[in-house]
Amino acid sequence: MGEPLLSLEGVSRVYGEEVLVHALRDVSLDIRAGEYLSIVGPSGSGKSTMLGLLGVLDLPSSGTIRIQDVEVNTLPDAERSRLRGQAIGFVFQQFHLVPHLTALGNVETALLYRNLSRKERRRRSLEALELVDLGNRHDHRPVQMSGGEQQRVAIARAIVAEPLVVLADEPTGALDTRNAANVMEIFAGLRSDERAICLVSHDLDVAGATDRRISMRDGEIVGDEWQGSVS
């Protein structure tokens, strides 16, 4: 197992001013290259807060977030955003595709403002879509696709920039069983030695498919188990 790609060190997140809500309390976690892990817990356990912090979409009230060796919570927004775009790929429960863009356009969005030619963006996006078996649907808009297909487009968008970590929030939550299984197969296929995949879910079947399971309750990590072979 390599150096940590993403790490939280004594991270707490408190919301509110008059009434304080401790969403996360003194959490430390390292995610290393090659890991396929899940963060599970009941509603209100702090897993979404954890995902926001891991994805650098939110900043901790205290503690440190590092992407590789870079401490991100002190960086200015532009720098932090650039790092987020390079290091992290997101998949959301509600897909969050831009409705007026085609599948290809949605995937290409992840490659904008990176000094890539249009041709290069297109080539890489088509490759990503091929990987999720949607190469022939690249010119379709989200409204013309099923939920499972939309989620596969979202996965293509998450991996097209070759991030260090793919963070997926309830990736099968809005899918039927067949599509959910298909999406889980894709995640399993995305595992590599350079990349970590982290699924956040309350679904124990999803958690069961991963190698490492982190359990959360009341804003704290209450379990960190290895379930499969550690690569």
């Binding site: 927004d77 955003s81 969005t109 992840a110 904008l112 968008r157």
Partner: peptide, 11 residues
């Protein structure tokens, strides 16, 4: 989603 994909506030 654009913010999540790395677009800054300025962008």
């Amino acid at each position: 989603i654009r913010r999540a994909l790395g677009h800054s506030r300025g962008t």
